[in-house]
Each structure stands twice: as C-alpha cells, then as structure tokens.
C-alpha cells in the first residue's frame, strides 16, 4: 500500500462525513423544486445538525445504556461502510477487511441496533417503528444480497473495489442482467433509506412513519448522530450504486494523485445526478401502505433474480 492509498482512504471517509448532509440537502432541494415549493437552503441540514449538537440532551427516565450507545454504534457502522466503498479510489487499505457481503452485514448490524434502541424506552411508537423497520429490513436484505451476488458472479469476486474495477473494464456495453440488478438495487435503496414508496422522510404522522418513529425519543447530540448516520447511509448506498453500476470515475488501480483529483468532481457529478433522480422518483410515486411494502421488495428481489438468470443464460 502506497501513501497515496492511505490518503485516498482517509479522504474518502472524511468526504463521506462532510458531504453526506450536503447530499441529503441536495435531494431535499430537488424535491422542493419538483414539487413547486420553496427550497430550503442547501446547507440547512448542517444547521440542523449544529443546532442539535448544541442542545442539552433529554433522555427518558428508564433508558438503558443501550439507548445511549446505539447512536454511536450506528454512526460508526456507517463510517466503516464509507471506508469500504470505493467512491474515490479502488486501492483502499481498509477494504480488505470486509467484502460486499460483510457490507450487507454491517448495514444489518446498524439496523438491529437502531431497532433495539427504539424498543428500549418502551413507547408504542418506538416498538411499532422497530417492528416495521425490521420487516422492511428482512425483505430488503435478501434483495440486496442477491444484487451483490449477481454483480459478484459477473466480476468473479466479492471484494467491492475489485468488483468496481472489473465492472469498469468489462467488454459488454449493454448488459441486461446488470440493468435488472440496477433496478433492484434502486428499489432496495428506496426501501432501506426510508424513501417514499416505503416510508416518507418528511412525515411526522405517527401511524405511517417508520424511521422517524424510531427516533422519537432521541434528542440533541444523539438525534444529531442518528440523523447524520441516516444521511451517511443514503450517501453510502448511492456510492455502492456508483461502484457497481457506474464505476467510471474513481482512481483505478495504483493511479496517482492526479487520478484522485479527477475522481472528486466525477463523484460530485454523479451524486448531483443521483440526487436529482432520487427526488424525481420520490415525486412521481406515492407512498405504499405498509403491507404493500413486501410486494415492492419482492419485485426488487425478482429483478435481481431475473438478472441472475439472464446472466447465467446469456452470459450478459
């Protein structure tokens, strides 16, 4: 590992930390534009975080240490995920510690801690949210794993940076199996990040919310960490999508600092486009009833399975 690789690694994590709220702000802004509302400033998410960090924390009387520890665990899991995903360069020293399957596991760990923390206070909303989150989770995880599996089959590896490199250099220009898998991945992204067909990030209507219901009892710095992790999660998912399906841009192999400096604008461009697309999808679709969520995610799973089958048959 050369020093530049370590530099890329640190830069990636730092960029994820810094840019994740920005990306969320960007999605919110696009959404507002598309819905003919006045958009909040781009930096509003940062202001929100800053405000929360400065407040005094209020913790429920009978909260256990688990409740206070969970934000840190979730946040740390998202940071670790950001360190694995090759968003700027593919020679990441840390990525050998975990492959794509471990990444799926990492997201599951974060989800379990989030749900456990939501159950800790024992309010009806918290447990309801935890239950729903776990339901969406257990449906989304197979679909996500199937996506990983198809891309792993195509690139003959489960190591995310190597996958990304091989995807970037493969000879096929048009791959239906990858296209199907990308659709599946997008659906999983929507579900896992509490986006519109499954959950509404803007709602605070008790009976329909999932993610927000779990955070109801959090305040101040804990809430800030949770919201920051949610932003990081969205950012991470977007970067996984880039690494698998739009792999061009990051510094490949042992490329030097120049490639890295080209990777940053490429990532920014991709994020801007992805944010716009996400806002468009959210604007165009309506929220599903909770019990339609399984159908939605089963469709995602089916897409991934079709991608697998088409790949096995056509080799494409």
């Amino acid at each position: 590992m050369k020093p530049v690789d370590w530099f890329t690694q640190v830069l990636e994590v730092a960029a994820a930390l810094a840019a994740a709220p920005l990306f969320q702000g960007w999605v919110n802004q696009c959404r507002a534009w598309l819905q003919n509302r006045r958009a909040p400033p781009l930096l509003q998410t940062y202001r929100g975080l800053r405000k929360l960090f400065h407040k005094d924390a209020v913790i429920a009387l009978h909260a256990s240490p688990l409740f206070r520890a969970a934000p840190y665990v979730v946040f740390s899991a998202m940071l670790a995920a950001a360190a694995i995903i090759p968003s700027m360069g593919t020679r990441l020293p840390f990525s050998a510690a975990a492959d794509a399957i471990a990444l799926v596991g990492l997201f599951a760990t974060a989800r379990v801690f989030l749900s456990l923390a939501a159950m800790d206070i024992g309010t009806p909303f918290g447990t309801l949210g935890a239950r729903r989150e776990m339901m969406v989770g257990f449906l989304a995880e197979p679909a996500l794993l199937m996506v990983v599996f198809v891309t792993a089959l195509i690139s003959a590896t489960t190591s995310l940076p190597v996958m990304s490199e091989r995807m970037a250099t493969q000879s096929l220009a048009l791959s239906p199996s990858l296209a199907f898998t990308a659709v599946a991945f997008t659906m999983v992204l929507l579900a896992e990040n509490g986006r519109i067909p499954i959950d509404n990030p803007a709602t605070h209507l008790e009976l329909t919310m999932i993610h927000e219901a779990m955070l109801l009892e959090y305040s101040a710095r804990h809430l800030a960490l949770m919201e920051w992790s949610a932003a990081l999660k969205l950012f991470n998912y977007a970067c996984i999508g880039f690494a698998l399906f739009i792999p061009w841009g990051p510094a490949m192999g042992g490329a030097g600092p120049f490639a890295l400096s080209a990777a940053i604008p490429a990532l920014a461009l991709k994020l801007a486009a992805a944010g716009g697309a996400l806002a468009l999808i959210e604007t165009l679709s309506a929220k599903l009833r909770v019990f339609r969520a399984p159908e939605f995610l089963a469709t995602a799973f089916l897409f991934a399975v079709l991608g697998l089958l088409v790949h096995l048959l056509l080799g494409a």
Partner: peptide, 17 residues
C-alpha cells in the same frame, strides 16, 4: 470475456426485456 458484437448485445437485451 470475449467481446460480443454490439448488435448481438442489443438482441440479448431485447430478449431479456
């Protein structure tokens, strides 16, 4: 992976669709 002609790739994509 042997390079497949683009037309055939397109046909395969149509088949998949």
């Amino acid at each position: 992976m042997a390079a497949t002609p683009f037309v055939l790739q397109l046909l395969n994509a149509l088949a998949a669709l």
